[in-house]
């Protein structure tokens, strides 16, 4: 993926800010939802080989809860909200006072609650991003899966797969109550979307 190798550092910073704004709003939304403070780490922006993306959430075979949305509009891409299964349990407990007994079995109600949390968070991430860039960005209806991280994340790499073996990943980690709940936002814009995002923000794209 040579087109990204010469991304100047300040362009990476622009993308970092994109992640910061989006995830900042999402963290605020989550904080309101569970009525507790939520901390957020500074986003990391990097070209990540496909192999290593799953390492960010504990490895290819790590079972995670993932809400996936396709971003449609001017700057299409893929978006994941990923939490580990024990964090998901705590989130359900805090939000709905549901005790999840088996990590790998979720009732319809729990499943739908997690999907809705993902929907609210991704929606606030994208709407702040759309305001900031003046680009239209609309999420599809979210889809939720509980499975191996490798199997889930490879789904978001298909657009990049046609161009190379790396994807540009904007990763934001947030924590609630120190480390009780840890979640990740992955935004993987389609290769064609970068030019539009940079243009919209007034950054020259050569």
């Amino acid at each position: 993926m040579s087109m990204f190798n010469h991304f100047a550092e300040f362009k990476m910073d622009v993308l970092k800010e994109v992640g910061n704004i989006g995830a900042g709003n999402a963290a605020t939304a989550l904080s309101r939802l569970i009525d507790k403070p939520v901390d957020m780490a500074v986003p990391t922006v990097s070209m990540v080989p496909f192999e290593e993306i799953a390492e960010r959430v504990g490895g290819s075979e790590q079972v995670v809860v993932a809400v996936f949305l396709r971003v449609e509009g001017d700057a299409p891409g893929n978006m994941f909200f990923i939490i580990e299964t024990n964090s998901a349990k705590k989130l359900l407990h805090n939000l709905l006072s549901i005790e999840v007994e088996n990590e790998n079995e979720y009732s319809e109600m729990e499943f739908s609650a997690l999907g809705e949390i993902g929907n609210i968070l991704a929606g606030s991430y994208l709407s702040s991003l759309a305001d900031f860039t003046k680009l239209s960005m609309a999420p599809t209806v979210p889809s939720i899966a509980i499975d191996m991280a490798g199997a889930i994340l490879s789904y978001g790499l298909l657009q990049f797969g046609q161009m190379g073996d790396d994807a540009l990943l904007i990763d934001t980690t947030f924590l609630e109550d120190k480390e009780a709940i840890e979640g990740h936002f992955f935004l993987i814009p389609d290769p064609e979307s970068f030019e539009k995002i940079f243009r919209a923000l007034g950054v020259p794209f050569e």
Binding site: F50, A54, G59, S60, E61, M148, G150, A151, S154
Partner: peptide
């Protein structure tokens, strides 16, 4: 075997790939 990778195994070796989704 990683994603988008291939290899062969002989002499009783095991060959493994993790996290196949749509792949």
């Amino acid at each position: 075997i990683g994603m988008a990778d291939l290899n062969v195994a002989t002499d009783g070796a095991m060959i493994k790939t993790t996290g196949l989704g749509s792949c």
